[in-house]
């Protein structure tokens, strides 16, 4: 088991090296000269040269790459070009508000989609099932931007049920975060519901279900003991894979509702060409993604004895 985890983790390293290379190529080569970006139009040549030296851009590319890897490992991406705050502090500052939005949204969404999907799988083929599946397709066909615009306008501006904009640290956050959480749930439930329903239906078609039926078990018991048990693995792994996105946050929701989280920070950074922040976010997002992918593979192996660990 430990050997498997180690092997799986080691495979993540070349992927991270590749991502670092893509990020650096993207911003330092394809994106033009970062120094010119920082200094604006018509900079003096000596300023550009000085900035190149201080940013390490006068070094050959392989050395810049090594520098960047060093920054990633030590999680020290320097300071923001915008206001000279250390990137690490920007990151930690935004983490709380983002999590206060994404964690409740994630839990509520998972609860709704899992229970609803089992419910419609139980009544598969019925009008209820067909309506729900159709509504789910309809739900995922609406642009996320339209959801946000319409619900913010209707529920917050017209009906004044929720605040339109703002954030408060501590327990007051619940008040400001309620509507964004609702929108997040609406945005994700359709997709998850469809996936979980497919998973449940696939399990229902298997031989062990027929055996259970043949020996006379009631349908309810088959569904909640046998089928749910076997569905648990794909459900858990899918939920685990979405965890990194809880940390990077939703930039649309955060911009629209003024939540000072990581998604909004990234958006501002991209608008201002704030390279250190963008690079830090890309690397952190990727590392989390790779880590949680490994975690989900390991969970798969732990829960499912059929998966050989070779």
């Amino acid at each position: 088991m430990i050997g498997y985890i180690l092997r799986r983790a080691l495979y993540g390293i070349p992927v991270l090296l590749g991502v670092a290379l893509i990020t650096l190529l993207l911003f330092h080569v394809a994106g033009g000269d970062p120094a010119a970006m920082k200094l604006g139009k018509n900079p003096r040549p000596e300023d550009v040269a000085a900035l190149h030296r201080s940013m390490g851009l006068d070094k050959p590319f392989p050395l810049q790459y090594v520098d960047f890897l060093g920054q990633t490992v030590s999680f020290d991406f320097g300071t923001s070009w915008n206001d000279n705050t250390p990137v690490r502090r920007i990151f930690l500052r935004g983490l709380g508000p983002t999590l206060s939005l994404t964690i409740p949204a994630f839990l509520i969404g998972a609860l709704i989609s899992i229970s609803l999907s089992l419910f419609v799988a139980f009544y598969r083929g019925s009008v209820l099932d067909r309506t729900t599946t159709f509504l789910a397709i309809g739900g995922i066909s609406i642009s996320s931007l339209v959801y946000i615009l319409v619900l913010q306008w209707l529920l917050a501006d017209r009906w004044k049920l929720f605040p339109i904009w703002g954030y408060e640290y501590g327990f007051g956050a619940a008040f400001f975060v309620a509507l964004p959480v609702l929108i997040w749930v609406l945005l994700t439930v359709g997709q998850d519901l469809r996936y979980f329903r497919t998973v449940a239906l696939e399990e229902i078609g298997r031989d062990y279900v027929r055996t259970a039926r043949a020996k006379g078990l009631p349908e309810r018991r088959i569904l909640f003991r046998h089928v749910l048990g076997n569905c648990a693995i794909p459900i858990i792994t899918r939920l685990v894979i979405t965890v990194p996105f809880l940390i990077t946050g939703s930039f649309l929701l955060e911009i629209f509702f003024g939540i000072p989280g990581l998604g909004g920070t990234l958006y501002t950074a991209i608008q201002n060409s704030d390279l250190p922040v963008i690079k830090a976010f890309t690397m952190v997002g990727t590392i989390l993604f790779v880590l949680f992918n490994i975690l989900s593979d390991v969970l798969y192996a732990v829960f499912d004895p059929r998966i050989r660990l070779s």
Binding site: L16, V19, F27, T248, T282, T286
Partner: peptide
């Protein structure tokens, strides 16, 4: 490698 970069981030960048 490409799939490891968060989709929206890669798209925006």
């Amino acid at each position: 490698t490409v799939a490891s970069i968060p989709y929206l981030l890669l798209m925006l960048a």
